[in-house]
């Protein structure tokens, strides 16, 4: 052993203080899931189901989009949890695979919606005040659980923290898009695609930036203490 490595080991061990361990992943996962489900349930009760979902028999394109958003959401949360604590590579790989599968399904769902424009369904405008409301609602539903995952990331030891925060945020915005899709009354195809199905890529990016700032703030406080 070189003398400098030996002195480094002595220096690291000298005056060693006890540390508080990170909570177990399954406990954080259960808490995040409970928080996300409760927020989505409150949102659905508050906003009410739209006509498409009131009869519980929406067309297949809706189910494709919902399956995609769900897969993307679960994958994002799993990848965020796995990358917060070292040694969870299979969880990260599984989470990223689910996100990719979810993204493909949401793109397929978007294509199925867009294909209806040629069949005479109303395309509507690409951007409207309602889009802002729906994107804001997706973010609102995502905030509690995404903030919890960000807090956990700041407590853990992520190798690429911006990616960890991104996985969790984009995933939970996808989850937040579910109650929005089930409650919004707009039948405009562009609105549904842009403000519902593709919400993780639109509202998600903004929330990612905000939660990244929160992470940086928490981390700097933690390092100061």
């Amino acid at each position: 052993m070189s003398r400098s490595t030996d002195s480094l080991i002595r220096e690291l061990s000298r005056g060693l203080q006890p540390v508080r361990r990170v909570p177990p992943l399954h406990r954080v996962a259960a808490l995040a899931a409970a928080l996300a489900l409760a927020t989505a349930a409150i949102a659905l009760v508050t906003w009410g189901l739209n006509e498409t979902f009131r009869g519980l028999n929406p067309e297949p394109r809706y189910w494709v989009a919902i399956a995609g958003l769900l897969s993307f959401a679960a994958g994002g949360a799993a990848a965020a949890l796995g990358s917060t604590v070292p040694g969870n590579d299979p969880l990260i790989r599984g989470g990223v695979a689910a996100m990719v599968a979810g993204a493909m399904l949401t793109l397929l769902g978007s294509a199925l919606f867009l294909a209806r424009i040629s069949a005479g369904e109303p395309a509507g405008s690409f951007w409207s005040a309602l889009s802002l409301v729906c994107l804001g609602r997706s973010s609102l539903v995502a905030i509690p659980a995404a903030a919890l995952l960000t807090l956990f990331a700041a407590r853990g030891f992520p190798h690429r923290p911006w990616l960890t925060v991104g996985f969790g945020t984009l995933g939970l915005v996808a989850f937040g898009a579910l109650p929005v899709t089930m409650s919004c009354g707009s039948e405009s195809i562009f609105h549904i695609v842009f403000a519902h199905v593709l919400a993780p890529a639109t509202a998600g990016l903004g929330l990612w930036a905000v939660l990244w700032l929160l992470y940086a703030l928490l981390r700097s406080r933690r390092e100061q203490s």
Partner: peptide, 24 residues
């Protein structure tokens, strides 16, 4: 070694040590 020191709070004794160590 410095990374292990900075990450030591992220290890949970009920989990295997190898994957944690080699990821770091």
């Amino acid at each position: 070694l410095l990374s292990i020191h900075r990450a030591r709070h992220s290890y949970r004794p009920e989990r295997p040590f190898g994957p944690w160590l080699w990821t770091i």
